[in-house]
Amino acid sequence: MTDPGEAAAAVGDQAEVVLGRDGLDALVRVLRRRGRTVIGPTVRDGAIVLAELDSAAELPHGWGVELEAGRYRVRRRTDPAAFAHSAGPQSWKSFLHPQRVRQWTADRGTDGELTVRAEEPARVSYAFLGVRACDLHAIRILDRVMTGGRYADPAYGSRRSGAFLIAVECTEPGATCFCVSMGTGPAVESGYDLALTEVLDGGGHRFLCRSGSEEGAAVLAELPRRAADGATRTAAADAVSGAAERMGRSMPPVDLRALMRNTLEADRWNDVASRCLSCGNCTMVCPTCFCTTTEDVSDLTGDHAERWRRWDSCYDLEFTLLHDGPVRPGRRSRYRQWLTHKIGTWHDQFGSTGCVGCGRCIVWCPTGIDLTEEAHALHREATEESASP
């Protein structure tokens, strides 16, 4: 291994290098040695989930997935690819914006004095290994929502600050992926510390790697690597462009914001309402849905109480509960609120769409409701109405 200082300079001069399986193993070791908690995909309980990794051997080598609306299955592959799978049931939101966060505790002393203590944000140094392009965009969206306004969330900020992001370009999209329609993938363009493209061909199993930050370059300098060759570059580019041509889903090629705005009274909403269970699965698996509520709990003595923040969903009947009842009592209005906000009025709040085309909501809907199908149906209905005399 070269001297780290000399290697860092070399990395700065050379934009791309090639890592072998030993380089991937070393990457996890180096990050853990630097005090990072490495989170990445692994096979567990019949799914590819995100969990803490002790080594690169825990990655889902040789595993892929079969996806369809309302259906998810892991399957064995005929090669040892580590990242040839689509989005699983979790997103990185689970670590940056956890499902439950304690906000404060209150205790009554023997003298009757009440002491309230704010919960200190968790201090953790994450390294996320295997972040897809769509999920990189999702993290940026969460950044704007959670820390970009007047009321920044310190719990999110603490987890997000300094998180080391290792992106992996998608080379095998799932049947429910539509990142091309949303302009979020499959290529990784920015917002990463390291970016990998997995290549498996006659030249072996390897990863084209480039750094996107000073820390990324420093980490890369500690790994066994070789200069990027033309064959690996070409194979990587072909794999990513091929993935873009094999998207399983697409959105209609129209202004989705205008489509949502102009179809609020469309008959299609009644059709989807007849199938929607209002379970909220789509909001739970969505990498950008961020809504929360609070709950207070106490012990039997009444001397200790806590306030917790937890995820909430606009599908919950009490999500918009006022003194006279819920604002959106029907499934039609609740589904319409979710979809029109996600790809329509999100622009008004945050300056971008709230959908990154990962397809999780399609896969994990118990009745197989597909937001791309609904968008196409709304577009057809609007087109037919405008064409009728």
Rank of each mutant, 00 (worst) to 15 (best):
A258H: 09
R123I: 00
V11T: 08
M146V: 02
G23E: 11
T147N: 11
T320E: 11
P366R: 02
G130I: 05
A47F: 02
L31A: 07
C134G: 01
R29A: 15
D229P: 11
R100S: 09
H376G: 00
G203D: 15
S91T: 14
P287I: 00
S86R: 06
C289R: 12
R226F: 06
D45Y: 11
I139H: 00
M182H: 00
E222S: 14
E222D: 11
R76Q: 15
A106M: 15
C179L: 02
T176W: 03
A152M: 03
T345F: 15
D238L: 14
A244S: 12
F290K: 04
N270C: 00
D107Y: 08
F178K: 00
R226N: 06
F350P: 10
R36M: 05
T383M: 09
E113R: 14
G157A: 15
V116S: 04
V74E: 08
Q14G: 08
T367S: 10
R309F: 07
I48P: 12
C291N: 04
P329I: 08
C170T: 09
D299F: 10
D255W: 03
E119D: 05
E119Q: 13
S388Q: 06
G70A: 07
T293H: 10
F164R: 13
D193N: 11
G23W: 09
D312S: 14
E172H: 12
T105I: 12
E381R: 15
Y315C: 08
C314L: 02
G46R: 13
C289V: 09
L194K: 05
R328C: 05
E295Y: 08
T383Q: 14
W311A: 02
R123V: 15
T42D: 07
D267Y: 08
H341V: 05
L317Q: 10
L264V: 10
V11G: 04
L194C: 06
Y72V: 07
C134R: 01
D25A: 09
S313R: 13
A167L: 09
A10T: 05
R336E: 07
E169M: 04
T176Q: 06
E189Y: 12
A218H: 09
A244R: 11
H347F: 15
E58P: 03
D296W: 05
T184G: 00
L200S: 10
V363S: 03
S250K: 02
S241A: 13
